[in-house]
């Protein structure tokens, strides 16, 4: 493996890791606060992607400036996150907070199944490809190989922004501190008067929006097909479990590990590429059972 190939593998891994991070960080936030593993998270990713593509097509059809497709990506994510997220949290999740973990998980599993068919009914089965934002930014030549600026610059930049932004949000703003408090100790937070219902809603919406943003940002790079949500879910689970539940910085590191691992595997041992996320997760958990940055759960006696 020459330095040149290692450099290429790193570049490839970065963009992939950025997307996975965006989805996984939403999942880990939701788990940290609501203690629910949201199987429908992949559906937010997929619907965010489809909506972004639809908006792009509408912009082109309306003859508007193609640069509007960039804000359209953000708009798609926000719409999906707020509308769908609020709907699911208020109409369904709210009723199962007091139920068993298994049932909560299955509720999200049921939502996932329903949303898979909703996607198909709304957008059909043909692959969608709306690459306008990517095309607008052109290519860059690195080491004799062409990369798209979108992939090399935009995706990692947005992921970094989200990482920093979330850190600031969780540590400095009031809402963020409330979320952190509920994550640390739900009972105590309730005891001091925090409106946990509101915190749950806000967290879920933020998590869903982040997943949808991942999807929206991914949509110019790839062909959107039914089932894309299901594949993303497992990957995000792997990242979240590796990172430790509720850990934002950990999710970034785990996403990077998995993204780079995967792209290096394509160069070194292509046949193992699909196994990388699960192998990383299994290995990390065998050494550190709570995840890389996980906090050991207190046991009741």
């Amino acid at each position: 493996m020459t330095w040149q190939l290692a450099f290429l593998a790193t570049l490839d891994g970065l963009a992939y890791a950025a997307l996975v991070f965006m989805v996984a960080v939403g999942l880990t936030l939701i788990f940290g606060v609501l203690r629910i593993l949201n199987v429908a998270h992949g559906s937010f990713y997929a619907i965010g992607a489809y909506l972004a593509a639809s908006l792009g097509i509408a912009i082109a059809a309306g003859g508007l400036s193609p640069w509007l497709t960039f804000p359209a990506l953000i708009l798609a994510a926000v719409l999906v996150g707020t509308i769908l997220g609020t709907l699911i949290e208020r109409a369904l999740l709210r009723y199962v907070y007091l139920k068993e973990d298994v049932l909560q998980l299955l509720v999200t599993f049921a939502v996932f199944m329903i949303l898979e068919d909703v996607q198909r009914l709304v957008w059909g089965v043909n692959p969608y490809f709306e690459a306008v934002p990517l095309r607008l930014l052109g290519n860059i030549s690195l080491g004799g190989i062409f990369y798209t600026n979108y992939q090399i610059l935009v995706l990692p930049a947005v992921a970094l922004l989200i990482l920093v932004g979330l850190r600031l949000f969780l540590r400095t703003t009031l809402a963020g501190k409330l979320i952190t408090a509920v994550t640390e100790d739900r009972e105590m937070a309730t005891a001091i008067g925090v409106d946990t219902g509101r915190v749950y809603l806000i967290t879920f919406v933020i998590g869903a929006t982040l997943a949808a943003l991942g999807g929206a940002l991914a949509s110019p790079t790839t062909s959107l097909v039914p089932g894309m949500g299901a594949d993303m879910i497992v990957l995000s689970f792997a990242v979240v479990a590796t990172a430790g539940l509720g850990q934002v910085e950990g999710a970034a590191l785990a996403a990077l590990l998995i993204g780079l691992g995967r792209s290096f595997a394509v160069y070194l041992m292509p046949e193992l590429e699909v196994l990388v996320p699960y192998l990383v997760m299994a290995l990390v958990l065998l050494v550190r059972p709570e995840g890389l940055f996980g906090v050991a759960q207190r046991r009741r006696i």
């Binding site: 290429l8 593998a9 570049l11 490839d12 891994g13 963009a15 992939y16 190989i145 990369y147 992939q151 991914a218 790079t221 790839t222 062909s223 097909v225 089932g227 894309m228 594949d231 995967r262 792209s263 394509v266 160069y267």
Partner: peptide
């Protein structure tokens, strides 16, 4: 069903 061929293309 892979959504990304970056590494292969590179």
């Amino acid at each position: 069903g892979s959504p990304d061929y970056s590494a292969e293309i590179s």
